[in-house]
Structures are given as C-alpha cells and as structure tokens.
Design a protein around this nucleic acid. Structure first.
Length: 830
DNA sequence: CTAGGGTTAG
C-alpha cells in the first residue's frame, strides 16, 4: 500500500509551509553532511535515508536529530516501507523511541502508517502495559480500516507477529476495539481466530461484546463462551445480561437470571436491580418495582440516587405523584440527596397530570436548594405548554433559555417543531429548523420525522421528499417513522400503487415487523375501496407472526363498513377481543357511523350502550356521529341539546360537528339558525372550514335566497378566505338551472381568477344545463372559453351541443359544430 | 435514571 500525503493538513502549519518551497526531495542536502561531520556515514549508504536517519538518531540523540534540518528535508520523501524499517529497528534498540517516532510521524507530518508499523507499536505498548495508548493506536487503525477488515488484519497479525511478546494482548485489544466501534462481526471474527490460537480474551472484551449483542439472542452464545473459557466474570457481566433480557422484553428471564446469579456468590448488584426496577416502571408496574426496591434493602444493598430516581419516575408516570414525593423525602432521610434529575422527574410528574402550577413549585424548591434548571427542566416545561396547545408559551420559554445562556438541545427544538407542526404552522417550524442548524445542532432522525410528517400532513409532499433526501444524504438512516410519513402521504393522495411499491421496499428493509407501516398500508387500501388487498395484507401479518393492533382492525372495520358489509364489520369487533386487544372509541365510532349512514339508529344506539358498558369514553367524533343520526331523524332540538351536553362533558365540538348540524338546519330551511351556529363557531374560536362555507352556500342556493348566496360568496372571495372549487361550482350550477347565464359566467370567471384547475367536467356541467334551457348562445360562449383554454371537447359535450342546436332550432351553429366535430374526429352518427 | 416523533373514526 502506498502512503498518501495529506498536503492541506500540514500546509496549515506555517513553519512547515515556509520550508516547503526550499525542500529538496532527492538527495540529502549539504546540511546533512554538516550535521554528521563528526563521523560521516558510510559512503555506500549516502542514498539510503533509513540508514542516515538511524545513524543520525544514534549520533545526535532523538530530539536534536528530529528537529534538525536534515530530517525535515528528508521526512516528506519517506515511504511506508522505510518508516516500517525505522520503527522496527527502534523497537529492538529502544522501544520507547519507536513509539515517539511513530507518534511524531503521524501527528506532526500526518504520515499514514502501515499496518505493520501500527502492529509493531501496538506490541511495544502492550509490552509496557500502556493500555490506553495501545487502544488509541488500534482505534485509529480501525477507524481507517472500517468494518469488514477483521479477516485481513487477523491474517496480518497471525503471520507477521505470531510469536511476539504480548501478542495475545494485542489480539484482545483488537477484539475489544472492534466491539467498542460496534463492528460486532469483526469482533466475533477476531475472537474466533483467538480461539484457534488458544489465546484468551479478557472479560472486558467479552463484556463489551455482550453489551453490543444484548438486544439479540446471540447474547447467550457469548455468555456461554465466557462460562466455558473459565475466566472470572466481573460484576458487569451479569448486569449486562439482565439489561439485555430487559431490552428483549424477557423480564421474567431477567428475574430468574438475577435469582440464579444470587446463588453463585456474586449476588445481585445495585445496577442489575436498578435495571429491573426501571423496566417494571416503564411497563407501568410501579407496585412490582417497589417490591424489588424493598428486595434491594433486604439484601443489604443501599439504594443509590439512580434507584430512587428510577422509582420516583415510575411512580410519576403511573400518576402517583404523592407517593413519588414521599419517596423523595425518604431518600433524604437515607442520606441520598435529591439531585437535578430527581427534580426534573417530579416536574415531569406534575406536567403529566397537567398541573403546571405543581411543576413550578418543584422548580421553586429546586432553586431553593441552589440547583439551577437545566436544559431538561426547560424542555419538560416547554413540552407541558406545547401539549396544552400553547406553543406561544413554549416559544417564550425558549427565549428565557437563551437569555440564561442555555443552548437549546436537539430535543428541545424537536418538542417545539412537533407542536408547531401539530397546529399546522409548518412554515414556522421550518424557520426554527434552519435556526437549529445555524446553531450547529445536527438534527437527528426524530427531528426529520417530525418535519417530514408535518409537511406531508400539509400536503407539501415535494418538500417532504426533499427533506427525506437531505436526511439520507447526511447518512442519517431513514427510520420507519419518517418513511411511514411518506407512505402515509402517498396513501392520502390516492397513489395506492406507488404507495405499495414503496411499502414493499420498506418491508424488505429493517422494518418488516413494524405494525404501524402495515396499518398505514391497510388503511390506504381500505379507504380507497380495495378491501381485498387490505385483507390480503392482514393475512400476511398473521402469517409473519406480527401482532396486529386495534388500529389494524379499525381500518379493516372501516373497509367493511365502506363496502356496506356491516355484519362482517361487526364480527371484527369481536375478533379484536379474541386477539386480546381492546376496541377503542374509534372502533365504535366507525361502526356507529356506518349504522347511522344505513339509517339503522337502533344498532347505532346499541353500539353506544355497549361502548358505555365497556367503559370506553365517547369522543367528540362519536358525538358528531350521534348528532348526525339525530339530524337524519329531524330531531334538531335534540341535536342542539347534545351539542351543549358535549361542552358540559368537556368534549369540544369541532368544525365537523358544526358543519354537520349546520347542514341539517339548511336542509330544514332554517337558514337563520344555520348562520347563528356559524357565529357560535366564531365565538368558540373555531375557524370555519371551506366545507362550512360550501354547506352554507349550498343551503342558500337550494333552500334559501340565491342572492344571499351571491353576496356570501363574493364577500368570501374578496376577503381571500380559503375556499374550495365546490363553493363556485355549486353556485354556478344554481345560476345555470335558473337560467342566469350571466351570473354563472361571472362566478366562472371568479373561479378561474382564483387559479382553480378547470376541467372539461366543469364546462360540460355548465353547457349541459344551459342547453337544457335552450340557452345556446350562452352555451356556445362557454364552449369557446373552453377551446381558448386549450381544452379539447369530448364526444359527450359535442353531442349535447349538437342536439341542443337542432332541438332549439339554432341551425347556424349546427354547421359550425359539425365542422368542429369533423375536424376533431368526433363526428357522431346521428 | 430525567426531555422529543408515527397509523384509525365523523
């Protein structure tokens, strides 16, 4: 291997830079002769820099020679082979200098050492038990060699250094460093070679490997090997196994393992018990966690601050803040002082209960104790405000942090980004995202997931994809979450075949067992009426042994409801329980809505009763469905009463709720009440949606006064309020039906002005209606606009116009139309 | 040991 100079790194050093121009790379300069004049080197070696360097070192001493002109003039021409010779020579003569020379070449001259030199120096360091440095040398080597390099490095070590002193230490450290760098396969390879050579690995190496493999079943292979090899286990060995079992969700095995090791004399360690307590807490079993805490005391082990913090945290997430506070005083009594982590945990505890005032009391106590809130404290507070929908307050806290000189972490930014996205302020989120990058913070896969998701939800799929690409280019591997966002957006945009191709590619990768991805795809199929494919995917899930969630079934139920197979939908409700899962409000609401659409109020109410009996709280969506049912039965007063009841029960009606009930009043020709409800929306700071206006405009067109509809739409149009094309098309339709071609034309222009895509369907809708009323000239007019916008007429539109011209007796246009149809190849056979 | 992200219903 040829060594490579890294010119730019040494050019940074001014003294070298100056010399560079005067350097000669061929023969030793005159100054060498002067340096060595006391005893000139052997003449035959004049051209051999290795010889000159070695004799120079000997004569002048290390420091003097290496800082001298000769060495500086010749150093840049040295290749790896020559450096190998020097180092190997020094190893025998004076091992310390071998290391110094090695370091100097690398640090001062950015010399890329060969494997041979590195291993030589590694052996020297191993011989002197300079383990930190040994590790460093091997770390440098493995950083450059990368993963998959173990076989060739082992070969090198095996054939080049077989009987060297302390060879086994170098092997062991090599395995250790591979393991630390998470190059597990390489580490295992080295260990296997060591086994062949009958070399023993140290417990540290085994522990490190055990640690890296603790997520997997291979952990046991390593553990058994430790037992077989007969080396003494350390305290950490058992803790790592227990941690691994916990991470593999084998909590029972972890407990049994703890009991087994108890007998072997080492006894359970604090760390092992802490791990188990932590696991039980995370699963929400604070009671079990407490019993292990007591067990710790029984063993005579004194709980440390970790033990207390873990338990206090467990109690907080279980909602038992009082008990958490009791343990906090308990820890003080036992001489363990609550630290910043304890206070942060308690703050979070209050935050989880929505008691922000309690959170502030904790912070006050923390301040009294002389502890300053840190980034975590602030993040918890920001989180609290954001989850209450108060992003503004969250942003204020950010200011506060900055004014205290606290740098926001990636995490605290992510909290803010997430809540900005949730309230639809994606642009603001992006601004904050760029600020974050400017601060030199590297967004991680969670940050990207949040933004990609936010953009997708806003329909900005292209920007989302750009961000996705950016993430991949930074070699942040896409997570199932960010990919899930893309998948979801493909489904939401109706691109089901594309979604499936993408889905298959995701399943081929690491996320073949992520049920959420399946759920998104199944829902995509169910939503777009492809129940067969949805069921096919469900079959695949069960075949793969993946546990479905209630969401999986909810989507299937939706699919069956959509295809009007209510019996099967209802049967699936029972299937949920057979899988040991609980139906949710979504399950029941989906079914209730289907019964409601079917006009089957009896079954709908039956579902509501069942829901109630099972203790599942209806949501505002459930109530909206019931309101819809009441409206269908023309029970308007009851609907209004339910709307009031909702608020009373703390369920806030949203836009859809109002849209439902407003539509109902429009149909009942009670336009006044419909507008009263619109005002009520405003008063509850609910921004009406485009659908709200569509309902009102339609109500005015069909059941009210068309002039009022005109006024409303024009006013909305002028105020630039977000509308859909439906607002325009339905009023155009109404005017056409009434024969107000001019008004229709005016609104048509307004619709075009707003930049809505106008399709042939819009033209034929107008032309059809105008023709029906024999408004041929007006229909022609729209026909001409259509042609001028580059839209080609289809068969149907030509037929309609042609027939109308004949029937209404406008023969002049018949010929024109005839010419047109011939020209377009759309001639009809009538 | 403490702080962040996803899927479903009207």
């Amino acid at each position: 291997m040829l060594h490579k100079w890294k010119p730019f790194s040494f050019l940074e050093k001014p003294h070298i830079c100056c010399r560079l121009s005067s350097l000669t790379f061929s023969k030793p300069s005159v100054s060498v002769a002067r340096l060595l004049e006391e005893e000139p080197p052997l003449s035959r070696s004049h051209n051999d820099p290795v010889f000159e360097i070695l004799s120079g070192l000997k004569k002048l001493g290390f420091r003097r020679f290496l800082s001298g002109d000769y060495f500086r003039s010749v150093v840049f021409s040295l290749d790896q082979l020559q450096v190998n010779k020097i180092i190997n020579f020094l190893r025998v003569e004076s091992p310390d200098f071998a290391v110094v020379f090695f370091d100097l070449m690398r640090n001062e001259y950015r010399f890329q050492h060969s494997r041979f030199s590195r291993f030589v120096v590694a052996h020297v360091l191993a011989g002197q038990r300079r383990l930190e440095e040994l590790r460093f040398v091997l770390e440098q080597m493995l950083k450059e060699e990368g993963s998959g390099s173990a076989p060739s490095l082992c070969e090198h070590l095996l054939y080049g250094f077989r009987d060297w002193d302390k060879n086994s230490l170098v092997w062991d450290m090599l395995a250790f460093v591979y393991s630390r760098f998470e190059m597990v396969h390489d580490a295992l390879y080295v260990l296997a070679k060591m086994k062949d050579l009958k070399l023993h690995a140290s417990i540290l190496t085994y522990n490190s490997l055990l640690y890296n493999l603790r997520h997997t079943g291979i952990m046991w292979d390593v553990y058994n090997e430790i037992k077989v090899s007969g080396i003494t286990q350390s305290k950490q060995t058992n803790s790592i196994v227990i941690d691994g079992l916990c991470r593999q969700s084998k909590l029972q095995d972890a407990v049994s393992f703890l009991r087994e090791t108890e007998a072997t004399g080492l006894g359970p360690s604090i760390v092992s018990l802490n791990t188990i307590i932590s696991r039980y807490c995370k699963l929400g079993f604070a009671g079990v966690a407490k019993s292990f805490f007591c067990m710790m005391l029984k063993y005579g082990l004194l709980p440390d601050s970790y033990s207390y913090n873990i338990l206090i945290h467990g109690l907080c997430i279980a909602g038992s803040i009082e008990e958490a506070l009791e343990f906090t005083s308990d820890m003080k009594k036992h001489g363990v002082e609550p630290d910043i982590v304890t206070y942060n945990i308690l703050t979070k505890g209050f935050r989880l209960l929505g008691q922000m005032d309690g959170a502030w009391i904790v912070i006050q106590r923390m301040l009294d104790r002389g502890l300053n809130p840190d980034v975590v404290t602030f993040t918890i507070l920001i989180c609290g405000h954001c989850q209450n929908g108060n992003v503004k307050e969250g942003l204020k806290l950010r200011e506060e942090m900055l004014s205290r000189g606290l740098q926001l972490s990636v995490l605290s930014y992510s909290v803010l980004l997430s809540s900005l996205c949730k309230v639809g302020q994606v642009q603001e989120a992006l601004v904050l995202f760029y600020e974050m990058e400017e601060q030199g913070l590297e967004p991680d896969h969670v940050t990207y997931s949040i933004l990609i998701h936010g953009l997708c939800k806003q329909g900005e799929v292209q920007s989302a994809l750009l961000l996705y690409k950016e993430m991949c280019s930074k070699s942040i591997p896409p997570s199932s979450l960010s990919s899930g966002a893309i998948l979801l957006s493909l489904c939401e945009n109706g691109m089901i075949p594309e979604a499936r191709v993408y889905f298959d590619s995701l399943i081929m990768n690491d996320w073949a067992h992520d049920i959420v991805l399946y759920n998104i795809m199944i829902d995509g199929y169910a939503r777009h009426g492809n129940l067969e494919e949805a069921l096919e995917l469900y079959k695949i899930i069960t075949e793969k042994g993946i546990t479905p969630t209630t969401v999986t079934f909810n989507s299937l139920i939706y699919g069956f409801c959509k295809s009007r197979n209510l019996a099967e939908a209802r049967r699936l409700l029972e299937t949920i329980r057979l899988h040991g899962l609980e139906p949710t409000a979504v399950t029941y609401t989906t079914l209730m809505n289907a019964y409601c659409e079917d006009g089957n109020m009896r079954c709908m109410l039956e579902m509501l009763r069942e829901m109630h009996a099972k203790g599942i709280r209806p949501t505002h969506v459930t109530y909206t469905v019931i309101i819809k049912g009441l409206c269908k039965q023309q029970k308007l007063q009851e609907a209004i009463r339910l709307l009031e009841d909702m608020r009373y029960m703390g369920l806030n009606p949203d836009q859809v709720t109002y849209n439902t009930i407003i539509q109902c009043f429009c149909k009942a020709r009670n336009i006044k009440m419909a507008f009263k409800l619109l005002i009520e929306m405003w008063m509850n700071s609910l921004e009406p949606t485009p659908a709200t206006y569509n309902i009102l405009i339609n109500g005015l067109c069909v059941h009210g006064n068309l002039k009022d509809a005109n006024k409303l739409l024009i006013s909305l149009h002028e105020q630039n309020i977000k509308l859909t094309r439906v607002a325009y098309t339905q009023i155009i339709k109404a005017h056409c039906v009434k024969g107000n071609a001019y008004s229709a034309f005016m609104f048509f222009c307004l619709m075009m002005e707003k930049g809505f895509e106008i399709s042939i369907k819009d033209y034929s809708a107008v032309i059809n209606r105008l023709c029906k009323r024999c408004l041929i000239t007006e229909a022609q007019h729209f026909f001409c606009i259509m042609l001028s916008r580059g839209i080609s007429p289809d068969q149907e539109i030509c037929d309609v116009l042609f027939n109308a011209c004949q029937q209404c007796g406008d023969l002049s246009f018949v010929y024109e139309m005839l010419a047109w149809t011939i020209k377009s190849g759309l001639l009809t056979q009538k």
